[in-house]
Design a protein around this nucleic acid. Structure first.
Ligand SMILES: [Mn+2]
Ligand SMILES: [Mn+2]
Ligand SMILES: [Zn+2]
Ligand SMILES: [Zn+2]
Lengths: 143, 143
DNA sequence: GCTATTATTTAGAATAATTCTAAGTCTCAT
DNA sequence: ATGAGACTTAGAATTATTCTAAATAATAGC
């Protein structure tokens, strides 16, 4: 649970910018997300967070995750009605959900791909964000 | 609540093909979806369905919607953790969610756009489906 | 450094969409 | 027409998430 100084600085700046305080818990949850760069649910984050900070509560995990999402330090990812997942990868990417293994994989997207999708919008529509979710079989789950 | 013969035929065929029975309730829920071609939640479908079929239950609405989705007669649409919505438009399209009005608008997608996205997948990945959700401001909600 | 103010954390209760259960009803092949 | 299995139904159960209210911690002003 040590947040590299560059990330600590990024966190503090983002929190200050939005008028929120830097706390041990927020720092720790951010570090948990950065440590293993997958897409854990709030429960999984809670489990991981507890090993270094046994007194943290699930409510705080939800609160911290919400704060980190609001300040654009992490992203939220949803598949159908499954529990929300959290992603520390801030680059432009889509998500691939493997129906076999349940794994979630980042799919990098070119600016061109995003451009194509933006051009599909009718006149007068402006999108702040596009969420792209593939589902199928990943490379590890062949026939 | 009259299902045009072509849709009745499509429903019966799809149900038969998957070894399920054609029932008044399934027919009615299908017709409700087709009548007003928006993106209602299960509760909204329930409310609409009750006016012509007052004894239908919410559980049945959920069951019927699930059956219709499984047989590819309608689509399911999710935005974040909001209640699931249902869409009778089977053409290839994305969804635009307007943060102002809450409206959900179908965005038709060219084969080219889908191709571009499919090409973004690394080797060994095969997608059965791509879910694309825009969010922003629609044409009716300008500054 | 102390203190007051305000934000944050916490445990547990509450919420809400959806699924499950078990009993009753309907459909359809025989 | 009958029986087996499918479907519907009301209500209970589930579960991810949010809310509540009290305890604790962070910061600004002294
Ligand atoms: Mn990701
Ligand atoms: Mn649609
Ligand atoms: Zn896989
Ligand atoms: Zn709008």
């Amino acid at each position: 649970m040590n947040l590299a100084p560059e990330y600590k600085a990024r966190l503090d700046k983002a929190l200050e910018h939005s008028g929120q305080r830097s706390t041990k818990q927020r720092e720790h949850i951010f570090s948990v997300l950065l440590e293993k760069r997958d897409h854990p649910t709030a429960d999984e984050v809670y489990a991981r967070a507890k090993s270094d900070m046994p007194t943290i509560s699930l409510a705080t995990v939800y609160n911290c995750l919400e704060t980190l999402v609001e300040t654009s330090l992490i992203r939220q990812v949803n598949f159908e009605r499954e529990p929300t997942r959290y992603c520390p990868n801030l680059t432009q990417h889509a998500h691939f959900y493997c129906r076999e293994s349940g794994e979630i994989v980042d799919i990098e997207l070119s600016d061109e791909a995003i451009e194509t999708l933006m051009k599909a919008l009718p006149k007068g529509f402006s999108a702040r964000h596009i969420d792209i979710a593939y589902d199928g079989k990943c490379n590890g789950c062949h026939d």
